[in-house]
């Protein structure tokens, strides 16, 4: 089975602040790590390869330093990495990102399965997967919690609000995975050493069959007008008495005045 795993490099913590001067997110001193859900996607791919054989290719679009993350996927067991890097890709929203990733997968030809994370922890959208599926014109299964591979189909388990689904899916297919699907494994010295013999290829815009108007900022319908930190709730914080019985009485009185305790809920 020829499997592509899309991985994104994200800041190591989501606990970020806005820089007063630049009005942008302060990423000073923040390292990059592989989006955690993408490690679940990679682990899924490795398990499928173990069962039915084939090849696992990791793919990322981003600046050149994302190659570090690709290298890490090779140490974890992927066969090769592809980096999509070009100035023209800068400023891409989910649509433009999905477009470039989709074209790269098209170029790889005969891909059976595309695996992506359920969402990236910085953008928090979960859109890139379904966008790629649409561009490739393949079926999709999102938020997979369990996958069992057969030679030419997958048995997938997922949950909606009140419904559990067991899906038998033919290939080609795109699947987005949750963090319930597996426990990503660690690598070891031997695998790290081996990984340096595995290839990482870089493709620029000219290597792909792209329409200029669909990449980067030009291809992004959404515009971020401003960013801010969540407004602090301005509540009047009333401290109750330190004696629990008195405090309870004060509270009940206040809630009755606010009509909170009058009717049975």
């Amino acid at each position: 089975m020829k499997i592509v795993v899309c991985i994104k490099q994200v800041p190591e913590t989501t606990n970020v602040k806005i820089n007063e001067q630049t009005k942008n997110i302060d990423r000073r001193g923040l390292g990059g790590v592989i989006n955690s859900y993408d490690l679940n996607a990679l682990q899924t791919a490795l398990e499928i390869r173990k069962k039915v054989g084939g090849e696992v290719i990791t793919l990322t679009m981003g600046p050149d330093d994302f190659a570090v993350s690709l290298q890490e996927t090779l140490a974890l067991g992927a066969d090769k990495g592809v980096l999509l890097s070009d100035r023209a890709f800068a400023g891409a929203d989910t649509l433009a990102t999905g477009y470039v990733l989709g074209e790269a997968i098209e170029k790889m030809s005969d891909v059976d399965l595309v695996l992506v994370g359920q969402q990236s922890v910085d953008a928090d959208t979960g859109q890139v997967g379904p966008i790629i599926a649409e561009l490739l014109q393949v079926s999709q299964v999102t938020y997979a919690e369990k996958i069992e591979a057969r030679s030419n189909e997958l048995l997938i388990n997922r949950k909606l609000d009140n419904v559990e689904q067991n899906i038998t899916a033919k290939l080609p297919l795109l699947v987005t995975v949750t963090d319930k699907i597996n426990q990503p494994q660690y690598t070891n010295i031997v695998e790290i050493a081996k990984s340096f013999d595995k290839p990482i290829t870089t493709w620029h815009a000219r290597d792909l069959n792209l329409e200029d108007s669909r990449v980067g900022q030009a291809g992004s319908p959404t515009i971020v007008r401003s960013i801010s930190e969540p407004v602090e709730v301005t509540k009047i914080n009333t401290r109750l008495s330190d004696d629990p019985v008195t405090a309870a009485k004060e509270l009940v009185l206040a809630l009755k005045q606010k009509n909170i305790l009058t009717e049975e809920a």
Binding site: I18, P221, T222, I227
Partner: peptide, 14 residues
């Protein structure tokens, strides 16, 4: 829209 695990709010238009 919230980002970074609800730590940042973005105002977005299309």
């Amino acid at each position: 829209k919230p980002s970074y695990g609800d730590n940042i709010m973005c105002e977005i238009v299309i």
